[in-house]
């Protein structure tokens, strides 16, 4: 399946940037970045089969959990830290976001938007945890423990004084169509570019 969320992220990152991808899986995003000319790229991934797949693709990856993957690095070691569709599975989202903005100048965070209208409708009509194409698993069988909405994440950033540089509401990962209005209602996926305080002009 074509992953337009990945393509959008690739387009957000300039050539020459230093990038760390947290939860890089099989290395698909990193490979796309590499092909687009971004060469200083690293990944962190916990699953050993994914590590082998990344090695096969010639990527530089570290096997460990996400918190471990960040602690080693000095402040501002990377231009971009990516957390693509992974925020909802981490145990300590606040800590991870803080660390991302310490080690990286900017962070790209994407997650499934629980405010999407079909999800709202699903809960309203069925009264059950939603199962839709981009959230396909049963409540007892999902690794997702911190689901949120685009609006939730905006509030999260506001209370922590984290500047949001950009928000892209993705109508569907499969078509790549974005929405400009009512993003919390119309997007399946929210992609945020947030900035470290260091990046904010005085």
């Amino acid at each position: 399946m074509q992953r337009f969320d990945q393509d959008i992220i690739v387009n957000l990152i300039p050539r020459g940037a230093r990038v760390l991808d947290l939860g890089c899986g099989n290395g698909d995003l990193l490979t796309k970045l590499k092909r687009s000319g971004v060469s200083d790229i690293r990944g962190v991934e916990i699953d050993d089969r994914c590590i082998a797949a990344c090695v096969r693709k010639g990527l530089t990856v570290f096997q460990g959990d996400i918190d471990e993957g960040l602690g080693d690095y000095d402040d501002a070691s990377f231009d971009y830290i990516v957390l693509n569709q992974t925020l909802q599975v981490v145990h300590k989202p606040t800590l991870v976001i803080q660390e991302m903005l310490r080690v990286g100048n900017k962070a790209i965070v994407s997650f499934p938007n629980f405010g999407y209208f079909r999800i709202r409708w699903y809960i309203l009509t069925k009264g059950q945890m939603p199962k839709v194409d981009f959230l396909p698993r049963d409540w007892y069988d999902t690794p997702n423990i911190h689901l949120s909405t685009i609006s939730d994440f905006q509030a999260f950033c506001r209370t922590r004084n984290i500047p949001i540089e950009r928000l892209i509401g993705l109508k569907s990962c499969a078509t790549g169509k974005t929405v400009g209005h009512f993003q919390n209602v119309l997007s399946q996926v929210g992609i945020f570019v947030i900035m470290s305080e260091r990046e904010v002009p005085n």
Binding site: I51, T60, F62, Q63, G64, D72, S77
Partner: peptide, 21 residues
């Protein structure tokens, strides 16, 4: 081994680490 890898990462060496089960 992780301590070794950590030192290498901090120095931005091109290092891949895997813990085989």
């Amino acid at each position: 081994l992780k301590a070794l890898v950590r030192t290498l990462r901090r120095k931005r060496k091109d290092v891949t680490y895997c813990d085989v089960q």
